[in-house]
């Protein structure tokens, strides 16, 4: 799948936060969006992931506008994953149940947890595991239906360096298996893992680096 954003403008009230952004994202790529705080990374990510409607401009999935995608819930469930800075695991469910929540095929849950190194924690609750393990469970939840793209906003914001690098490692591994990742981050180290680095400043893309 190819996600394209064309000439995106976004205002919050009178505040102009995205100024003519064009971007194209391929399935299987690992794109990092970096930039100063307030440069518009989260806003762009929300627009690309269909959670937010831009003031103007268009996002297309394989040349189809969002309005042509049919039921947006179904589309999201099959094609888009999310990882937030905070894990947002549901506290009364075990890790396994959290991951299975949206699974189209429950049989995929356990192998996925194994491959993320949290297989033995399946029956634990989110307050019974470490921060890194929680975030890996949240990543598993995003990956469970093998979406075309996973969007992650500051996914390592609450993690120490070692855990953060582990998360980037996972993204890289799964992108090589075909899932696209778009990750907004302050962390410069992500550049060592991503294949495309997009730098934002003041609502505009100022640099695109491909490796």
């Amino acid at each position: 799948m190819r996600i394209q954003a064309k000439n995106i403008e976004h205002y919050y009230g009178i505040e102009h936060v995205l100024r003519g952004v064009d971007i194209s994202i391929e399935a299987g790529s690992f794109t990092a969006i970096i930039g100063e705080s307030g440069s518009g990374k989260t806003t762009l990510l929300s627009i690309l992931s269909t959670l937010l409607n831009p003031t103007s401009g268009e996002v297309t999935f394989d040349e189809k506008a969002i309005s042509e995608l049919g039921n947006i819930d179904v589309f999201r469930r099959h094609n888009i994953g999310f990882v937030f800075q905070f894990h947002y695991l549901i506290s009364y469910l075990t890790l396994r149940e959290n991951i299975a929540l949206s699974a189209l095929d429950e049989a995929t849950v356990e192998p996925l947890m194994e491959s993320l190194g949290i297989g033995r924690l399946a029956a634990r609750y989110s307050d019974e595991v470490s921060g890194g393990e929680r975030q890996r469970a949240a990543i598993a939840r995003a990956l469970v239906n093998r979406p075309a793209v996973v969007f992650a906003d500051e996914p390592t914001g609450n993690l120490d360096t070692k855990n953060a690098l582990g998360v980037y490692e996972l993204f890289k591994r799964f992108s090589q298996e075909g899932t696209g990742f778009v990750v907004a981050s302050h962390d410069k180290k992500i550049a060592d893992y991503a294949d495309t680095i997009i730098e934002m400043e003041d609502g505009k893309i100022v640099k695109i680096l491909k490796r």
């Binding site: 589309f75 999201r76 099959h78 947002y88 549901i90 929540l101 949206s102 939840r141």
Partner: peptide, 14 residues
């Protein structure tokens, strides 16, 4: 709220 927000974001229907 966050629980239901999460459910919406991972594509569970209303």
């Amino acid at each position: 709220k966050t629980e239901f927000g999460i459910m919406r974001s991972i594509g569970l229907s209303s």
